[in-house]
């Protein structure tokens, strides 16, 4: 899931310093599961923010609290229509995608991020999450025993482990970061696929990651309507061009 953590109160208070009536909008998706942006956290943030503002900006603010099922799907945004009309600004505590989903739908309301989004992670033990996927758009897990060096190697190298691997840990932080290449080695050994890392892995094609520009995902069977409309438009354009050509010929 997508993990995130709350921004410092001081930073959020600075964002909303010109507003008196605010909506704090939570998300019932990933950030609820990682305890940073769900209904409960909306309550905590609302209370803490009110007190912070009173204490540091010497004023009272009114905060509306709401949480929608997901902030990454347009069909849920309609539910906050009335609330958005009432408030002067919104602090969104979904992931970065959630903030921008709202921005698309409510162009006239200032919308601020209340969280710092931290990647695609799994829960290791209750209260602890660790990054697992970098969303590079070109998965190589079949070659690396199901362990990702792009997300989990500090240098994202494809021919590891580097010289900084000691006793299974990474030199960047030997206390908390495991050397994923050590894990890959052990894993490939146990499934009899060591050949995979005896070969040189070629340079990665990063054009499928965000380096290639904003990525779009289209399921054509779902997006059919648009495609049909586009087709109709194209037919019309062709027709017009033919007519213009015919007209030019008859004149000439």
């Amino acid at each position: 899931m997508i993990v995130a953590e709350q921004k410092p109160m001081e930073e959020i208070a600075e964002m909303i310093k010109d507003f008196n009536k605010i909506l704090i909008l939570g998300c019932g998706g990933c950030v609820s599961v990682c305890l940073s942006g769900g209904e409960k956290e909306v309550g905590i943030m609302a209370s803490a923010l009110k007190m912070f503002v009173k204490n540091n900006q010497n004023r009272d603010i009114e905060i509306k609290e709401m949480t929608i099922s997901r902030q990454c799907d347009w069909e849920y945004f309609d539910m906050v229509k009335d609330a958005m009309a009432e408030v002067e600004a919104c602090v969104c505590i979904g992931c970065g995608a959630g903030v921008q989903g709202l921005v698309d739908v409510y162009p006239n309301v200032p919308i601020f991020p209340g969280l710092n989004t931290g990647g695609l992670a799994v829960g290791k033990v209750p209260g602890v999450w660790e990054e697992r996927c970098a969303g590079c758009g070109n998965c190589i897990l079949h070659l690396t025993g199901g362990l990702c060096p792009i997300a989990r190697c500090s240098k994202h190298i494809l021919n590891g482990p580097c010289g900084g691997s000691e006793k299974g840990m990474c030199e960047v932080d030997p206390k908390t970061i495991e050397c994923v290449w050590h894990l890959i080695y052990e894993r490939l050994k146990s499934i009899g696929k060591l050949d995979n890392i005896y070969k040189i892995m070629p340079m990665k094609d990063w054009s499928t990651s965000s380096d290639g520009g904003v990525r779009h995902l289209t399921r054509e069977d779902m997006a059919k309507l648009d495609a049909e409309e586009e087709h109709k438009k194209n037919v019309e354009l062709e027709k017009k061009a033919e007519e213009a050509e015919a007209a030019a010929k008859s004149q000439g």
């Binding site: 109160m9 803490a48 007190m51």
Partner: peptide, 8 residues
């Protein structure tokens, strides 16, 4: 932690 952060 929150109370320290908000100045209470």
């Amino acid at each position: 932690k929150i109370l320290d952060e908000i100045g209470v």
